[in-house]
Design a protein around this nucleic acid. Structure first.
Lengths: 208, 208
DNA sequence: TACTTTGGTGAGTGCTTGCTCACCATCCAT
DNA sequence: ATGGATGGTGAGCAAGCACTCACCAAAGTA
């Protein structure tokens, strides 16, 4: 009798340390993304992950450490970089821009990451700098470099390459800002939107 | 003797209600802008305004009410709208774009407002919607309407007007994001930057 | 079987938060 | 002068916060 009661009572079959850590991080991700670092309590995270608050602190010494772990895990742009570099090598201008734009605007693009990034930038988390300077700026410099090259080759007008690259990312980032953060509805399909942005960037507004 | 002592002791000459309210709002503005709503305490605000916390709550029933008062006071785009409409009526395309871009990028542009807006958008404050839908969207629709008109007149290529307007604002907003929030240095002067962005937007990247 | 390690918790701790309340001080009108 | 309105405060409250601690339970291991 005693034994059975014992077995039945708490019996969710202990989870491994790594799994727990992962589930805590994923629970934290969506909470931090929606409410920010300061707007999220460790109690909420523990609850969302289905464990006690005490266990959270067994895995991460502080709330801050959990946040840092989360941010460094989320940063992953591999795959895109190679595709972009290939398109650049082949001078496939339009494909290059489409790749970059599509990566962020495409249907499955993770709005959580975008919100996390913005929050961390605004709240001034130290990981934010790392995030932007390492990951984001890779594409920044990559694109600026490519534009510079194409200007030298005479294919593009002699604009400032860095500003041109920033302008392009601006269009994309702003789109996500309106769509993911402010909740503006899409008014064309994802594909058509990307196409339109790229066309505008490459050819300008004025009828030539 | 007695009289003098009385006069000298607490003597900062009582401030009027309106002045106090204004100084509280201005103190709150910079604190909310740097730390967000949740990251700012009423104690900090009171301290920055040089009064007791209790007085703050005499002027604003809740922290939230102060935030709302602040946001609705900060929203003021008058002046620009008329100038833009005038340029539009005269079909001074470049001047119109320069006006819009300059308004946000110019040297004195208030970074506090931009941060406040972003924070309120991320934190999901109800004023945020009002802010964006009323103020921000005015220019959105204004510009989109103008672009549509110019397309009809055959001056612009037949692009989607709304997306084109968004793209333009995207460039500007992104510039401020990099500069005001992430702390990226300006690499050209304000004037040259604006000029470059407008030129890119109007003429495109590709040498025609 | 016994023992160490690891997963897991309830019940706190001290501190900070938004907010209140009783009270004082100064102005202005009568 | 005097009384009501208005500007202003110190002390404190209940709730919530990040974080801790003593302790239990289930595995692996000898």
């Amino acid at each position: 009798m005693k034994k059975i009661a014992k077995l039945v009572r708490h019996h969710p079959a202990r989870t491994s340390g790594h799994q727990r850590q992962a589930s805590l991080i994923s629970a934290a991700a969506s909470l931090f993304a929606t409410n920010g670092f300061r707007g999220t309590t460790t109690k909420q995270i523990a609850l969302a992950a289905g464990v006690s608050e005490a266990l959270l602190f067994k895995h991460f010494p502080t709330k801050h450490a959990l946040y840092t772990a989360l941010l460094s895990e989320k940063a992953d742009y591999s795959g895109l970089q190679e595709a972009v570099e290939e398109a650049a090598a082949k001078r496939e201008d339009k494909r290059l821009f489409m790749l970059l734009a599509n990566y962020r605007i495409r249907k499955g693009a993770d709005p959580i990451l975008f919100r996390l990034l913005l929050f961390s930038a605004l709240e001034g988390h130290e990981m934010s700098d790392m995030f932007f300077r390492q990951q984001y700026r890779v594409f920044h410099d990559l694109l600026a470099g490519y534009i510079r090259q194409r200007i030298d080759e005479g294919a593009y007008r002699p604009l400032d390459p860095l500003l041109a690259a920033r302008a392009f990312f601006g269009v994309i980032v702003h789109h996500r800002l309106l769509h993911d953060i402010l909740g503006f509805p899409m008014h064309l399909t994802h594909e058509a939107t990307v196409e339109e942005y790229v066309s505008l960037f490459m050819n300008g507004l004025i009828r030539q």
